[in-house]
């Protein structure tokens, strides 16, 4: 209760500011239309018009939600105008890529922890790769894979995979190294083999770190899938909706695609948070 009221207030203020911003943003168009028609309007009519334009510079919140409702609930999900259809295209690429990236990331992290040469060779590159905008190679991957005949889901999943790969490697290495000397010594006194040490100590200890990187990774995967849809020329998916909207000046469509992407991202992060809570509770790491 202590946080619900302030959060609702902040959201209310944002919505109010949004409505207020619509008036100066959209009124030049209204004035232009009135001049052309040679009519005049009262102030209230004028304001109402700025909130109900066909192609406003800034659509009012209710227009965006109307569009979301129309394209999510009212359309059949197989229709090309349904946002669920486009969302699913993006989501499937995101999830496939996220799965591949996470799997390979965990494998590499295990290798790094067990081989000193691998650690010294690969780890600096993994860390540096976090500071560079790898997303810049997304258009190239799409076009190159297209030219050798691979298209559709896989190229986007590939971009999602490498965007989620490095956060998982870095987080997982940190996690696998998190058991302290005392715990490792205890296992040694039990005469545990290094495989047993891995399965019974290192892997469980790494889970909190893994989940933290998974949250970053899944958000990055979604961005990757959206950006991966741009160079193919706006065919399918949320990124395509963004691009098509910006080609044709359909601002309401851009905003609804943006909200759909935001809802998807929030849902994915919340889902991982839920799995994290359940897993850690069953392992007794958090009450």
């Amino acid at each position: 209760m202590r946080t619900v009221f302030p959060v609702l207030t902040v959201i209310g203020v944002i919505v109010a500011l949004w409505y207020a911003a619509c008036i100066p943003m959209n009124s030049p168009w209204t004035i232009q239309q009135l001049e052309r028609a040679g009519k005049t309007m009262t102030v209230t009519e004028h304001i109402a018009d700025t909130w109900a334009q066909e192609r406003p510079r800034l659509p009012a919140p209710h227009q965006v939600f109307q569009e979301l409702w129309d394209t999510v609930v009212m359309k059949k999900i197989t229709s090309k105008r349904s946002l669920v259809y486009h969302g699913w295209i993006t989501l499937s690429a995101t999830l496939l890529g996220f799965g591949i990236g996470t799997g390979l990331g965990i494998l590499l992290a295990v290798g790094i922890v067990h081989s000193r040469a691998m650690d010294m060779s690969v780890m600096p590159w993994a860390i540096v790769s976090q500071t560079i905008p790898i997303i810049a190679i997304a258009p190239m991957i799409i076009v190159v894979l297209y030219s050798i005949g691979v298209q559709g889901l896989l190229p986007k999943a590939f971009i999602s995979a490498y965007l989620s790969f490095f956060p998982v490697v870095v987080g997982m290495v940190k996690g696998l190294r998190s058991p302290d000397a005392m715990q490792l010594d205890l296992l040694r006194t039990y005469y545990a083999s290094s495989a047993q040490g891995f399965w019974k100590l290192r892997l469980p200890a790494s889970l909190p770190y893994l989940f933290a990187s998974l949250k970053i990774g899944v958000a990055a995967s979604l961005v990757g899938a959206i950006v991966g849809e741009l160079p193919t020329g706006a065919v399918r998916g949320l990124g395509a909706r963004l691009l098509a909207g910006s080609y044709y000046g359909q601002t309401v469509q851009i905003w609804s695609a943006l909200f759909a992407a935001a809802i998807l991202a929030a849902g994915l992060v919340a889902l991982i948070g839920l799995i994290e809570r359940i897993t850690l509770r069953r392992m007794g790491m958090r009450t």
Binding site: T3, F5, V227, L242, S246, G249, T251, A265, A266
Partner: peptide, 24 residues
């Protein structure tokens, strides 16, 4: 208490998608 949860939420979103709007 009001802005921090909203800010945390926003930090996880694909904000880069606002690019077409801002370019416009």
């Amino acid at each position: 208490r009001g802005l921090l949860p909203v800010g945390n939420f926003m930090a996880a979103l694909p904000i880069v998608g606002t690019a077409p709007i801002l370019v416009m």
